[in-house]
Design a binder for these strands. Sequence first.
DNA 1: TCCCTATATTAGGTATACCTAAATTGATCC
DNA 2: GGATCAATTTAGGTATACCTAATATAGGGA
Lengths: 236, 236
Amino acid sequence: MPAGGQRRSSESVDNYLKAILALSGPEERRVTIKALSEELHVAPASVTNMLQKLAGEASPKVEYERHRGVQLSHAGKRRALEVVRHHRLIETFLYEVLDYPIDEVHEEAERLEHFISERFEERIAAKLGHPKIDPHGHSIPALDGRMAARESIVLAEVQGEGTFVVDSVSDRNASSLRRMEGRGVVPGARLEVRTGTGASSLRVRIGRGKAFELSREAAREVRVARPPSDRGTRRG
Amino acid sequence: MPAGGQRRSSESVDNYLKAILALSGPEERRVTIKALSEELHVAPASVTNMLQKLAGEASPKVEYERHRGVQLSHAGKRRALEVVRHHRLIETFLYEVLDYPIDEVHEEAERLEHFISERFEERIAAKLGHPKIDPHGHSIPALDGRMAARESIVLAEVQGEGTFVVDSVSDRNASSLRRMEGRGVVPGARLEVRTGTGASSLRVRIGRGKAFELSREAAREVRVARPPSDRGTRRG
DNA sequence: TCCCTATATTAGGTATACCTAAATTGATCC
DNA sequence: GGATCAATTTAGGTATACCTAATATAGGGA
């Protein structure tokens, strides 16, 4: 037997499942080998191998057809959501209970998510009051895998002007995350887009603060929603 | 590269180092392949292989000579103590902060000890007020590897009668640990040995409770110390 | 001293999960 | 309808960490 991370349904497998879940989006499109290869920083050949293995198991975690990409099976989606639940609960726990800086939360969770027990999961959830949202603004899947759908759009894609509420900030890039926090771009903050059309950067304002520039690049990390008062209105 | 538990100084290697540390005792005797094989539930041949690998590294973690057993090198001891520190801090944290039952703490710590970051270690230590003892009564090594020496003896080896303080209860056997807790055999408890000579069981009493029988087998899991008031006296 | 046995070692294999290089496929472009 | 090319797949290899079976060795007892 290998290293030890194995008998426990495998860190690698978990990462493939999570990546497929993330890349297939809410519409659950098929995911290509290339996309997975880039997401996971693994050679395409290795991805093919792994998918063939996962598709050939007793209860397959993916549906895979040569040259046609993959989709999660029911079992695969279940496991992927469980790992996402772990990840987001751990992030919340590190942030709320252990006072981690927001930008260090992701990396630790990325490792620990594979190794915590059901009991650990249950205990931190209880300690946190069964949170539904993590510190980045992402929904935490429930125990049964259900997850609140969020209606939000990528800030970089906002056209024209408008007022929004910050929905989430991606945890993938620690330094960007740190800068966002420094500028008050945190979930729940009121965000006003001043000028957005076409330009390579957006001019935005947080609450009543001073307006500042945000590159489209950086704005790709942020999702925003219409403020509650704005229901049904369309302006952008 | 293998599963993922590898780039991080390896779960397996950590477990070998911990086992050598535990088996070599305070006198740091050489440890045999057989002892390690039994401790780790791994075939003797596998142990030999691993030790040869560890001894042949750039900065070797063990000193190994064919047919003469192993000892930890300075680096190896350092790492082993770091893992023990992780283990005991995690146990304390699970018990104190997450309200784990005492008998579930070990298994979870056994897994997580390999994967937490320095930051995590530092945060839980701070949260707990830099504890020196874990919930089983074991000393927690300091950051620099120093560990308070404890003067205690195995309860099973007590001859005659006497009054003691429970020093520690082994975490290796969950069900035994649970029973001990049920009877009040927990670190710090006052324990009186009523009759002990030769018999296959001991008659003991906790505090002012009712006396009960404890098999020598079970008593091997418990370490006791002379009560503070009893310094210098010898009775057993 | 020599043998015998427990202990240890070597030799050869397995599975996971990665890699590179070579071969194949499918889709598009002319 | 065939060529071209990017994407994918196959083939063959690496490292870790296990395993079993076969072999070697050390140290005690006759």
